[in-house]
Each structure stands twice: as C-alpha cells, then as structure tokens.
Design a protein around this nucleic acid. Structure first.
Lengths: 135, 135
DNA sequence: CTAGAGCTTAGAGTGCACTCTAAGTCAAGC
DNA sequence: GCTTGACTTAGAGTGCACTCTAAGCTCTAG
C-alpha cells in the first residue's frame, strides 16, 4: 500500500506510437491519418522534432472513425461529431441524437443488404443468371 | 382451348416505357439511365424518333443493377457481369462465380455493419459518447 | 560525418460514379 | 404554324474521399 515498486515496474508511459505504427495497427494509411488530422477528426501531439505521437485514445478514435466510415457516414458528419466532442460535455445530447439518427441509417443499410443478398441468392439458385428478373 | 378471345382481351403489348417513367419507377435518374446505357449496362430499343423504349426486361435489369450497386459492387464488375450475359449462355459458369464471390463480399459487409452497429449502440448506451473508446 | 529512412508540410492529382450542360430534334396542343 | 416540353447527343463538370508529390528536416547507424 505504501510502496511505489509496482508503479515503477508497471510502466505508466502512455505508449505513444508513430504514424506508421498506427497505420499498420489500424489499416488506415499514414496519408489518410494526416488527412484526418487536417480536416479536424484528430488532434495528435508531436515529439520535439514535430512528429506525431498517437496516444491510445487517438488510436481508439481512429478505430471508431473507421467503424463509422464503414457504415457510410459521410466525412462531414464524422467531422461534425468530433467537433461536438471537442466542444465539451454540453453537446452530449446533440451527439446522442446524431448517433441515434445514424443508427437508423445503419438499420436501413442492413435491410437493403439483406434484400440484395436474397436477389443474389435467387440468381445463384437459378444458376447462370442469364435472365435479369430478380424475384 | 381453341378460342383466342382471352389473348385478344389481354394485351400482349410489352408495355414499353419512356425514360422518365422508368426514372420515376426505379428511382434512378434519367441522366443515370443514359449513363448506364452508355457504359454498356443497358441496351434499350428506340422508337421511330430515336427515344428510348424500356421493355419490362430492361426495367428489371435496372432494378437488379440498383440492387448490386446498393451492395457496393463496383460499376466495373456490374459491367463485366452484363457483358457476360450479352456474350451468351456459355458464360454462365463465370457469371455464377462472379455472383458467388460477390455474395461473400455482401456477407462481409453484413458482418462489418453489425460490428459498427454494436459500437454505435455501445456509444448510445453510455450516452453522450464523449470518450472515444468503442468496446 | 554522411547516407538513408522516415518523418514534416502545403497543395496537387486521382478514381469513382454520377450529374449536368449545350445544342439540337421531334410530336402534340393551341 | 408556332410554342412547349420531353427527348436526343457528346462531352464537360462535380463531389467525395482519399492519395500522392515535392521539397525539406531530423534521428540513427555505419
């Protein structure tokens, strides 16, 4: 309880990572990471030489952005979301609303995808798909 | 069995439609329909004045294209698919393979979407989403 | 001390899928 | 006969989201 040994042996260092490490880790290219920062999705600290040091939190954010992009959220809306985050806790209701609205669009996409899957399965079932009927 | 009355009363006309009708019907703009024809996805007959007459089959094809596009099949691949259709029945195995491969990609999209939905639901659950963690 | 890898920046370029423009034709209604 | 409006064409323009280039800086290894 009074020793500091454990703290010393377990590094408290935030394990900041370089842009190329984050690129490899997340599958987002270094070019794109810089682009994301430029348009305000990220705000990454620098080392003494001006190089980006991605904190674990920055990396989590990149992953979250990627998830949102996978659901076709327009970059503009992602920008808006993180602008709200930067603006402080009083924007939480607005962020929530944005997410809830986006959730609807994801559900709609799921419906669309299932419909398309059925069509494709039908085509596959009738084999070559030489006709263009779909149901 | 020997009368032709039913045939005469039920019109055999193919009910060809104008580009604007098809646009309204399918939700694909007239501009885009012309574009689709230009890049080889459609091959639409004309009336004596050179205007497009979309057959029911053409319209089905537009709907099918729309379904494929909704699953993010690149236009190039849609082009390839219909080029195979035009090329004749001997391309059926290749078409089938293309569809089966695309089916895989749709399943992957579904997995991605479900993952993103979970993330969004988690964010919504913790309310404002002020942190950027995702699980 | 120098070569090279890897980073920095502002800004230009790319690819996709439309989307629109301009100039013209045609058929129907007044 | 003329206007209106929907159609025709080739080709240019748009918006999105990256993706890359060029020129320069800095840390590390030999």
């Amino acid at each position: 309880m009074t020793t500091t040994e454990i703290d010393r042996s377990a590094p408290e260092a935030p394990a900041a990572r370089s842009i190329s490490e984050v690129a490899e880790l997340t599958g987002v290219s270094a070019h794109t990471l810089r682009y994301y920062e430029r348009i305000g999705l990220l705000d990454v600290n620098r080392d003494h030489a001006g190089r980006r040091l991605f904190s674990p939190n920055d990396i989590q954010r990149v992953v979250f952005i990627t998830r949102l992009r996978h659901t076709d959220m327009p970059i503009r809306q992602v920008q808006r979301y993180f602008a709200l985050v930067e603006a402080g806790p009083e924007t939480q209701p607005e962020r929530l609303e944005l997410l809830v609205r986006h959730r609807e669009s994801v559900l709609a996409q799921l419906t669309d995808l299932h419909a398309a899957l059925e069509t494709i399965d039908y085509k596959i079932a009738i084999y070559g798909g030489s006709d263009t009927s779909f149901a």
